[in-house]
């Protein structure tokens, strides 16, 4: 059976901006998830390992948290930053 997505593909092309957004998100997602494989970290600790802007890391980390890739742990000793860790999906 023909899927309806084919009808839409005949009507429009994917804008370059959308492709760029997917690439940017996937790149940061990989970096954040790789960083957290070593153990739980705060956002500034993750940012120290990367060249990316800290606000972009925060935004993407919170999106990963929303979609269940991560979970929040305890707050640090100064009551400033939460630790984040990979979520065990099992």
């Amino acid at each position: 059976m023909k899927k309806t997505i084919d009808i839409m593909k005949e009507k429009r092309k994917v804008p370059q901006g959308v492709k760029d957004k997917i690439k940017a998100f996937n790149k940061l997602k990989k970096k954040i998830l790789d960083s957290l494989k070593e153990g739980e970290k705060t956002i500034p600790e993750i940012a120290k390992e990367m060249d990316d802007d800290i606000d972009a890391i925060t935004y993407n980390l919170m999106t990963l948290l929303k979609y269940g890739f991560l979970e929040a742990g305890d707050i640090d000793d100064n009551d400033e930053y939460y630790y984040y860790r990979l979520k065990n999906k099992e």
């Binding site: 940012a47 606000d55 925060t58 935004y59 930053y81 939460y82």
Partner: peptide, 16 residues
């Protein structure tokens, strides 16, 4: 809420 607590959008710091 969008974050796990009330946090700064820049760096996730809990504001005081």
């Amino acid at each position: 809420r969008p974050f796990n607590n009330v946090l700064r959008p820049m760096d996730g710091k809990m504001p005081d």
